[in-house]
Design a protein around this nucleic acid. Sequence first.
DNA 1: GTCTATAATAGGATAGAC
DNA 2: GTCTATCCTATTATAGAC
Lengths: 209, 209
Amino acid sequence: MANTATKNEEVPTRERILREASRLFARKGFHGTSTREIADAVEIRQPSLFHHFPTKRDIMAELIDIDHSEVAAVAEREAAAEGSAALRLYRYLVWDICFICQCPYDLTSVEGVIDDPLFADKMERRDALKRARRSIIDEAVESGEFLDVDADLAEKAIVWVLQGDIVETAGEPVPNADVIADQLATFILRALLKDQDQLGAIKAAAQSG
Amino acid sequence: MANTATKNEEVPTRERILREASRLFARKGFHGTSTREIADAVEIRQPSLFHHFPTKRDIMAELIDIDHSEVAAVAEREAAAEGSAALRLYRYLVWDICFICQCPYDLTSVEGVIDDPLFADKMERRDALKRARRSIIDEAVESGEFLDVDADLAEKAIVWVLQGDIVETAGEPVPNADVIADQLATFILRALLKDQDQLGAIKAAAQSG
DNA sequence: GTCTATAATAGGATAGAC
DNA sequence: GTCTATCCTATTATAGAC
């Protein structure tokens, strides 16, 4: 039950709590993780946690905010932007996957608790993110860039890939985030694009932007 | 906190426990769900649960078994079969998605607890399922039916779509399971097939088989 | 900012009547 | 097979010294 790779260098206690808690939540669930286990992983005593966070819930709440706020901002920006919707979706996907791949927290547990009544106040921002993402997809289908697939299905598949990547990455930042991001975004676009030869143009435009 | 749609007809108590528990586990996590909440949803008293299951853990363990045993059997059968690997993957995917879409339990929480030390004894079968699925994918890449993509990535994307479908379906059997199954399996194959025109032949062969 | 000691309660499980 | 009553442990959080 020792900490993973957090002890070296000068990482503040509050930050180490977030990192170790995120790993334990991913492995044992939010409710399945006791404050003692978190404290053990951080190598402090259990009550010392409460100097940094008022409750255990607030540790999870901060992880949720970290996950949702930046990502929602980028999705909303791309949703409001002009030009090819397929290109905007690609840009958003690459950004989100890079974020996931470089995040020092294991955000696996976030999706698992977001429907828990205990975190009801965090649902609004999650829904805003979903709306923004969905509007880009709708535009890509309506404009004819994507196959005439069920937009619900396309949205779901995209979310599932992102969620899967979060679980896979597990808060261990990888050096080749941009490669992973391109591979996954390419996988999604290949499944959805009407004309797969457009992929090259989209990637080129994303580079230059 | 009333039960959802389980009270009508003659559903045995043990069965209702599995159904209601699966929904609560999905929403609040295994550890976040108390035996009192399960009992309330089933409309019995909390100690009555222990007439049907020796511990709360055993309820979850049975849901894990339900999820993994049948699916693993089908994946292993297709992995051992002859012929086009792309076709065998399509058959497996359609079967698995139909299973998910018709299952009366919300198996969302299974993936979330399978790495919990409390369910360590359930990991072996999960790993066997993963190996079988992986071997079909490897064959499809090696035979040249699939693009020369990272097989790790392909496997992950497939698992993520299946996992996403489990969360989406949430134990509410849908009438059009075969349509959903075809759509999702098509999404995956379109992203992976070297020649997308093969899709028609694969579907035709799957029908006749 | 971390510690020891402890309060307060929630939750899993048992005993035994009906 | 379900009930009431209850035990017992684990867990969150607080108080107050250093």
